[in-house]
Amino acid sequence: MPEWIGRDAALARLGVRAQTLYAYVSRGQVDMQPDPADPRRSLYRTEDIEGLRTRRGRSRRVSAVAASTMAWGEPSLETAISTVHHARLLYRGQDAITLAGQATCETVAALLWDDTGPVGFPGPMQGANDPFSALAMLIPASYPALGRGIDKLQADGAEAIGYLAQALGAASDLSLLHHRLARGWGLDSSYDEPIRMALVLIADHDLNASTFAVRVAASTGASIPACLLAGLATLSGPRHGGAANAAMVLLHDARESGVTRALTRHLATGQKLPGFGHPLYPMGDPRAAALLAALPPDALTRQLWQDAAEQTGVKPNIDFALAALASTGAFPPDAPFRLFALGRSLGWVAHAVEQVTAGSLIRPRGIYRGRLPAD
């Protein structure tokens, strides 16, 4: 799919007159640029056209509009933390792909938390062996989030991430988080950089499912560790953080039986190919492209994503890239989930604090389809 299309193609996809298309441009809903081949003509951003077409196809009843916000619909909560703008992931206005070139978890946390001071994640001398227990053990002794200063909430978040990191296998010391994780997993120093990049790229991603769960918990005044536990529980689902593990299965299948046979088997199920495609990135997930480019060359991995893209028309997403990273060495079997959980926890803390300071309870209404009493 081209990133830019001509006027006639845009009108055909939207099913509107030219005046309506121009109105969308004037309102900032569709981005436009001159055609390099003919400056008298204009090109229109495909992503914007497709987004408009999807939204216009929905019923515009109030209840339908409200329901549509829950499934890749219109923005429903204000945030200054991150967004996807014209297929670019931004952390407080800074390009996440650029940040991934050299930023650490510590510097990205300071950015996402809007914190001017240095951020560290001290690990406990002795903690739980699994991430759910690590966060749960902090909750009984934690203060509720309401009425407390932002610095106190961020300190709670740093402590919770320290506990989470150690439960995910990071070494317990005061070095940078990606060093601790590589060392705790018994990997040599060559893995430090791709692990650092992966954690930065996964740190936040608009109002994804786990981040929304964190904000719901935070809106009730729950403690920061409790908010992170809500996010971690949501992340554990196969449609979210578990998607990278499904991509690992696909990679393993390709190594065992060959790329063509593995793709044939997975496509025959009729299910979406794990690790490919993303609704916010119709031209391809830039996080995946950045991470895959930083990994050692691997002929089978490259053939898998190229053949899959050719057969399905979609490119790898960050789940596939995390699986590809984990397949390059002696990583833990669930390394993609661990990377996802640790990296995303940076954003969870930012969203929890932002929601607490907003001071509102997130409480949507349900559309009741059950029985009613007879009059």
Rank of each mutant, 00 (worst) to 15 (best):
I5S: 01
A9M: 08
A9P: 00
Q19S: 15
R27M: 06
Q29C: 02
V30T: 04
P34S: 14
P36E: 06
P36D: 11
P36Q: 02
R41N: 06
S42I: 00
Y44S: 03
G57P: 03
V62Q: 13
W72I: 08
E78H: 14
S82D: 12
L90E: 04
A103R: 10
A110C: 03
P124R: 09
S133P: 03
I150E: 15
K152W: 00
L168N: 02
S175F: 07
R180E: 11
R180M: 10
R180D: 10
G184T: 08
L187P: 03
D188F: 09
E193C: 02
I195N: 05
M197Y: 01
A198C: 11
L199Q: 07
I202F: 02
I202A: 12
I202V: 15
A209W: 08
S210N: 01
R215P: 10
I224T: 05
C227P: 01
C227D: 12
L228V: 04
L228E: 06
L232D: 03
G241T: 10
A246I: 00
L250F: 02
L250N: 09
S257D: 12
V259C: 03
V259N: 06
H266G: 00
A268G: 02
F276P: 04
H278Q: 11
A299I: 13
T301G: 05
R302I: 00
A308N: 07
V314R: 01
K315W: 08
N317T: 03
D319L: 00
D319P: 01
D319H: 04
S327T: 01
S327C: 05
F331S: 12
A335T: 12
F340Q: 10
F340R: 05
G343V: 04
V349N: 05
H351A: 11
H351Q: 14
V353H: 06
V356M: 02
I362A: 06
G366Q: 14
P373Q: 09
